[in-house]
Design a protein around this nucleic acid. Structure first.
Lengths: 246, 246
DNA sequence: CAGTGGTCTAGACCACCGG
DNA sequence: CGGTGGTCTAGACCACTGT
């Protein structure tokens, strides 16, 4: 990680600066609840304008790493505010953030005509063709965490093979690298349900155990739906974190 | 709602502009998925600089009203993205947003020494005094929705009486009006649990029914903890909604 | 190509906080 | 009072989009 800003880098300067500061925070160089250098000091140190410094800090404030106090300074958020922030993440990233090794067992995979309810969530016309369906048991450190069924809207003619997914592990990475589709926004609902005998067997819990049900519609950069995903999480192993603001 | 920006208003210009644009969207003046005027047009129309226009648009994008497309324009979000945004709300506000009439039955209320686990969540020293404890059955349109137990850290000597709460209905409003404490940020976790016989009786469901458990620590403007609140929601009546970004 | 948003600069004044 | 973040300006160049 360099600690100067390269004006010729393909990343914008404010983004580079945010990365540098995030790194310095992670290194413990700035302690929790302690101030980081002032905006004018950072402006001079990294040879960028104050607006650029502020853009970088804005980003880190939104991500929960820093907070500002008018007339006092900009401070490092206490540890607990740094993680579990409500961000759009794949199951893979989610597990890594929790310090668990992500894993999966692919149960089914292939093109299907989406059920009516799913078709609507995918915002597809009634006469739409087939979409990619994947059913997976999701593991954290090798232990069942949840049961995931997902539907993907891929560009005309495109698909993902079982081999690709097994090699890479993350659909999101394939979407990004192969189709240049970047998940940028999502609507998610969470509710409670209980396990059917089939679900219970896969998750290795008694039938009727409580589960956390997440349903999510994910949108790409250009605002089109790319995914509808349903995850049944084991109630005893999964907890959802959010950071709320007003 | 004025239609021009008053430089002498106590509200910053970008904030005034955001209010004007939000109003124009609400009026249907700009339709969903249709572009609003370009940044340079807004700059001229409202006699502010482009950076100010961008600050206003940034705000509305974060609030979910608009989205940008590079090289194309700034567009109005489809309806469903405009509501249900993951915001810090009280139970009262939450119910209103869902179109239900909030209600409550106060079960217990008064000063207590917080249990160890709660004391830590409130970030109080070991030798702290008493905090305000409130246990309430929460209703939506008169029907039990959840069971809420909450602890409040009030300024030295301050308290809230049962009469005040019954008259006003919302602790948040009392906090704001009486103590000038404004909830601005919170950490929330959601998980699944099952109802004990006592909880089940109050919520009018069978014992062992699945529940959604929310635990939240709420912070005021000055970053101090004001509240730790635990709500057990009926699994069959409550659904949590979030909008995720990346 | 012209028009859009994305990034960036060098400066300015204000409101707020602490000594 | 000096230092902090909050707001604002008038300009500039870039990357991306559509025609």
């Amino acid at each position: 990680m360099p600690d100067t800003i390269d004006p010729n880098d393909f990343l914008p300067r404010y983004y580079q600066l945010a990365n540098i500061l995030r790194e310095r925070i992670a290194n413990g160089e700035f302690a929790a609840r302690q101030p980081i250098p002032s905006e004018r000091q950072l402006e001079e140190r990294y040879a960028v304008s104050r607006i650029t410094v502020r853009q970088a800090i804005d980003l880190l404030v939104r991500q929960g790493f820093l907070y500002r106090e008018h007339g006092r300074g900009t401070f490092v958020s206490p540890q607990k505010l740094q993680k579990g922030i409500s961000e759009l993440t794949s199951f893979t990233e989610d597990m890594k953030q929790r310090g668990l090794e992500p894993g999966q067992r692919i149960l089914q995979m292939g093109p299907v005509r989406p059920p009516e309810k799913v078709r609507q969530r995918l915002e597809l016309p009634e006469d739409c063709g087939e979409v990619l369906y994947i059913e997976r048991l999701r593991l954290g450190d090798g232990v069942p965490m949840g049961l995931q069924t997902s539907y993907y809207v891929l560009p005309e003619g495109g698909t993902i093979t079982r081999e690709e997914l097994e090699a890479c592990g993350s659909v999101y990475r394939i979407l990004q690298e192969k189709f240049h589709l970047i998940p940028t926004e999502a609507d998610e609902t969470l509710e409670v349900t209980v396990a059917t005998p089939q679900e219970a067997a896969l998750l290795q819990i008694p039938a009727g155990s409580p589960l956390l049900l997440s349903e999510r519609t994910t949108y790409s950069q250009d605002r089109r739906v790319i995914e509808f995903v349903k995850i049944l999480y084991r109630g005893d192993r999964y907890r959802y974190y959010a950071r709320l603001t007003r």
